[in-house]
Design a protein around this nucleic acid. Structure first.
Lengths: 155, 155
DNA sequence: CGCAATCAATACCAACTTGGTATGATTTGA
DNA sequence: TCAAATCATACCAAGTTGGTATTGATTGCG
């Protein structure tokens, strides 16, 4: 299904909530209440986000979480990698790859190229884009101006 | 990990083998021998490919499989969908989506856009591209000429 | 100080998915 | 008819995932 985990989805939801709550420190209970997720689950989500450096945590009384940086600077790739680790479509794309079918794998090494493509795309979509349905427009502008190496027009 | 299943990978390997064996009818044993996969596994792979219409099968004596169409007309998306079903990053992207966290899901519906993006990319890479390391060049030429709607340059 | 609020780190478990294999039925060609 | 193949299932072990519980550490405050 080429799917992502639910936790990753939750991650986006939570980040979005943090984004619209601006600078407010949010406890796991707050977040759980606002998003409809069980606090226990929220805790798991937050840990992944914290480990990835996407949120900043403060412990103790009146502690909680807040975004580590602007929604414009958080890409979908960031979130995906936070929960699912490095994007590696096949095991051959991994570092410790020792194929049983080595000969044929050499050809399939182009999975690496596809990996690159997908990562490029995911890294171009930010949390801010998800919040406002202007993805197409933004992608167009940013990609054409900032990086002529890859262009995605009018998906 | 945003990974695809091994079977999908096998599918690519097998299709590649069929591609370089041209019009020859290949039995599961042949394919297994050539690719290093167990014949039982090959059978499973072939079924998925056949169901998806990517290979044509002939039963009975001297039967076997052959490509249903040119390697130029088989996209990575075709293969991925053959094994993993429709690309749906999240369950919300599916038809029968009834979210527990409906309110927040509305925002995350932009996963749909990302889905579209990824599918665009995958549909642009063909089996032929995987066989020859000219993906970048081909993508550039085809996309610019044939469809100015999406452009991927020099990944 | 001592308590309450809050995150951190594990550990656990049921449910599902995946990869791989086996088995018997069906079709085809000679 | 017989052998060569695929077809359709069914099965199972192993791993992954989602969700929860438990215990410990940290911080603020009265």
């Amino acid at each position: 299904m080429l799917k992502i985990g639910k936790l990753t989805d939750y991650g986006i939801v939570v980040l979005n909530h943090l984004a619209q709550s601006a600078s407010l420190q949010q406890s796991t209970d707050d977040i759980g209440l606002a998003t409809g997720l069980a606090t226990a689950t929220v805790r798991k989500v937050m840990k992944a986000l914290a480990d990835a450096g996407l949120v900043i945590t403060r412990r103790g009384a009146h502690g909680g979480y807040r975004l580590a940086r602007s929604p414009l600077q958080i890409s979908v790739l960031d979130v995906v990698e936070a929960f699912e680790g490095p994007v590696a479509l096949t095991e051959c794309s991994t570092d410790d790859h020792h194929c049983d079918i080595t000969e044929n794998c050499s050809l399939a090494s182009n999975w690496g190229g596809i990996n690159q493509l997908l990562m490029q795309v995911l890294s171009r979509v930010t949390l801010e884009d998800l919040r406002n349905p202007h993805v197409q427009d933004r992608l167009y502008r940013e990609l054409v101006q900032q990086s002529p190496r890859i262009q995605l027009v009018n998906l």
